[in-house]
Every structure is written in C-alpha cells, then in structure tokens.
C-alpha cells in the first residue's frame, strides 16, 4: 500500500506545477490518502488479459481535412484570439522574460 506523506504530495504538486501551503499539504495527505486507500480495493480484482478502456468511443476517430478556417479579425485588424490574452504585444501573446 502506498504511503501518502508530505514528501509525496510535494513531489506530485511540483510535477503538476502547483504551489501548496503547509496546511494544504497536510489536508491533501489526509484526503488523498483516504481516496487512495479506497482505490486499493481495485487490487481485489483479477484483470489479467482485460483490454483497458481508455476512450469513450470504440474504434478509430473520424478525421477531417486539415484546412485552416480563419477566425474573423477584430475591427482594428488584430486577431480575435488575442482578446483572451492576459497580455498581448502586436500580433502575439506577451510573456515575461524568463531566465533559468
């Protein structure tokens, strides 16, 4: 059985790019520990040779032609998709400079 401790929660949070406070870590140690303990019951089942069901549909998905369908630009000519950008510069998404 997996030991859900603070180090594990911190490690996984790091992988998921989440910053947790000490209180949050403690809370998740408890609640995620409870859930994973419950999930242990799956080990009671013999699933040898069972094909995993990874998708909601059977078989392969329908493909469509790879055609660009432009989104109508704004009245000032800028791409509309930039309306959602936290920050934009000219015709692009602006991000802070990063070193490291």
């Amino acid at each position: 059985m997996i030991d859900v401790n603070a180090a594990l929660i911190q490690k996984v949070a790091e992988l998921a790019r989440l910053e947790l406070s000490d209180e949050e870590v403690q809370e998740y140690v408890k609640s995620i520990g409870d859930v994973l303990k419950h999930v242990e019951q799956l080990n009671l089942l013999n699933t040898e040779g069972v094909e995993p069901m990874n998708y909601g549909v059977d078989g392969s998905l329908r493909l469509r032609e790879d055609v660009v369908q432009p989104l109508e630009p704004k009245s000032d000519g800028k791409p509309r998709i930039l309306e959602t950008a936290p920050e934009s510069l000219h015709d692009g998404f602006k991000v802070p400079p990063m070193i490291g």
Binding site: L8, I9, V12, A13, L15, A16, R17, L18, E19, L20, E24, E27, Y28, S31, I32, V35, L36
Partner: peptide, 18 residues
C-alpha cells in the same frame, strides 16, 4: 498562475498527476 485553482481542483490534479 495555477494558484488560481480552488482546493478541490488542486486535489484532483494532484491525484491525477500521481
């Protein structure tokens, strides 16, 4: 940025990442 997520969402992301 991701500190904007609420407690339950973070819990599920951690569980799923695990």
């Amino acid at each position: 940025v991701r500190s904007n997520f609420g407690a339950e969402v973070k819990r599920r992301i951690i569980l799923g990442t695990f």
